[in-house]
Amino acid sequence: MAAANSSTAEPGRLHPWLRALLAGPCALGLTALIMAVMPFWVPKGIGGVDHIAFPLFFMPAIWAVIFFYALLDRRLGRIAIVMAVIAVIHLIALRAVLFG
């Protein structure tokens, strides 16, 4: 993905800060959101606890995937859209679970 759009790279002094915003606080927030929704779609398993254990165990990996994606995709707009779509889907799911 990163290599595919070298000709459309976006220069500018603001971009490093926007990327830092996406890879930093936004990645942390999205990780928390994904973790919060995971108990509602991860199967409980034979012990009835997998839906709690998996979000806890994979939390560093989820964050790392989002962080490196936000770091290495050349198009800031695409990063923002992908992260926003994932966030919106999870927010809707969370709202439905908590207040639905």
Binding site: G45, I46, G47, G48, V49, D50, H51, I52, A53, F54, L56, F57
Partner: peptide, 18 residues
């Protein structure tokens, strides 16, 4: 019982490894 839950499970095994 394992570290969490009543029965051995993949989730309990993963957390038990930490």
């Amino acid at each position: 019982r394992p570290i969490i839950g009543m029965k051995p499970s993949l989730g309990a095994s993963l957390l038990g490894l930490i």
